[in-house]
Structure formats: structure tokens, C-alpha cells
Amino acid sequence: MIGMNHFLILSAILFAISIMGIFLNRKNIIVVLMAIELMLLAVNFNFITFSSFLHNIDGQIFVFFTLTVAAAESAIGLAILILLFRNMRGVNVQDMTQLKE
């Protein structure tokens, strides 16, 4: 029988993979953004799992809002990405060192 832990461990694996993704693709900001989406998915997975097993609908409401915010976030993130690409002819994270100067 599939219990709550199965889902939680699955989401933990997803989370770990997304962390690894951020480290592996340090230069590619698009993949970093996608890893963040993956991370959010893992978080949502947790919410859904608890909500479903605890029979509490509030968790799902939270997921709903997370989705909303994540959508807005990725829209803005991609807009910034385009702006970045336009100004620097690339999306290399290593080039983004304006803060340093």
C-alpha cells in the first residue's frame, strides 16, 4: 500500500535533484529557473500529500496560491532574462557581476 511517506520521499528526491540542478548549471540561468520550478513542484507535492492524507483542504489552497505566485515569478524572471540577454548578449550567470562594481 502506498502511504504518505512514499509521496514525501518522492518530493524529497525532487527537491534534492533541483538543488543539484542549481549547482550543476551554475552558468545557465534558464536551467536554474527551471530547477526552481522543480523545487516549487516538490514543495507543492508536500502540501498536496499532507492535505490529502490529513483531509485538510487548506493545504491545497496554499498550493493554489503557490502556483499563482510561481506563474508570476516565472513570467517576471523570464522578462528579466530577456532584458539581460538583450544587454549582455548572453545568459551567463558569471557575467552578472555588476553588483561587485
Binding site: 538543488i19 542549481i22 549547482f23 551554475r26 552558468k27 540561468i29 536554474v32 550567470v93 558569471q94 552578472m96 557581476t97 555588476q98 553588483l99 561587485k100 562594481e101
Partner: peptide
């Protein structure tokens, strides 16, 4: 630590 590289900051965050 303040390298100016975004990924350094991300690393420390994680």
C-alpha cells in the same frame, strides 16, 4: 564571499 557572482550567493543560500 561577496564575489558578485549570483551563483555564489545561491550556493550560500543552499
Amino acid at each position: 564571499l561577496q564575489s558578485g557572482y549570483v551563483n555564489t550567493y545561491a550556493t550560500f543560500m543552499i
